[in-house]
Design a protein around this nucleic acid. Structure first.
Lengths: 152, 152
DNA sequence: TGTAATGTTGTGAATGATTTTCAATACAAA
DNA sequence: TTTGTATTGAAAATCATTCACAACATTACA
């Protein structure tokens, strides 16, 4: 059994729940995708496979995966929650271009010492971190500059 | 005219829009609140005042305030977007307790140098930053520990 | 083997925040 | 005044997410 499945199984047992076939299928699909996804995209991906699982079950399973620490919330977009699995995948900073929608990621590690210091001071026990920066990517900075000179 | 109103006015002019009475009222209400708010709470606050403004107008004005850089998105909660005005109000880190829902804030400034370095490397022009940490606050850590020993 | 007890699922309906539509209005420029 | 354009409130529409419920699956145990 894959490591993520072991973790999910342990989590479910701990909660008195079972690793059923639909849950297993959703889990595998989540870990087969190496991009961010929303509930519908996940559902579509599963429909491509043999077994059909209802959208409700997908929605019901996501909170379990979050709670198990296997999936984290990513930048919400187009009115939908987005997620990504965490597995060998260190937490990162999301850089979202407001013009072209491109998403880049960088490492969060360098920020940890500072955050840990603050957490200590607050006596806060962090469980998840989300750092999103919005702005313009290098491709869109020139476009924006043109716009401004047009308006002059 | 207050500084924030000047800024909003400039922004609107720039876009060929006008600072109407409803917009002015929403703007003032936003800046009279020094906590996070969602659209409905903002609407309720306005209803307390004389002029009545429709919820639709509130929803229509929020994106303008965001785009003008006067308001920023805060931690979404209970299925609703939340906002806060930015004015002499340095950007901050949000620490949300998943147990009691308490929200604490700390300063983001110490992280800027690192973020700026990364932005330079990416050639990214940041416009807004959102850093959310979820976990347990000092009041709830002991409660959680009790739970765990109960389960043994 | 039967039979509770309990968790799980799919279907379809409900919910509820946010957007959109539309007709009426305000207001500036000509 | 006339014309054009932005703005508004009210009501309806949208649409992601959750819920209700009846049918199943699985286990424990008589």
């Amino acid at each position: 059994m894959e490591e993520y499945a072991v973790i999910f199984n342990q989590y479910l047992n701990h909660k008195g729940l079972k690793l059923t076939k639909p849950r297993r299928c959703i889990l595998d699909t989540v870990f087969s995708m190496h991009t961010h996804f929303n509930a519908e995209e996940l559902y579509d991906k599963i429909r491509g496979k043999t077994s059909s699982i209802s959208l409700a079950t997908v929605y019901r399973t996501i909170p379990l995966l979050l709670d198990a620490g296997l999936v984290q919330r990513a930048l919400r977009s187009e009115g939908r929650e987005r997620y990504e699995h965490i597995f060998g995948h260190p937490k990162h900073i999301h850089w979202l271009c407001r013009n072209c929608g491109d998403l880049m990621e960088t490492d969060l590690n360098t920020l940890y010492p500072i955050l840990e210091k603050q957490a200590q001071d607050l006596k806060f026990k962090p469980e998840s971190i989300e750092l999103n920066v919005k702005g313009l990517c290098w491709k869109c900075i020139p476009i924006e500059n043109e716009k401004q000179s047009d308006e002059k």
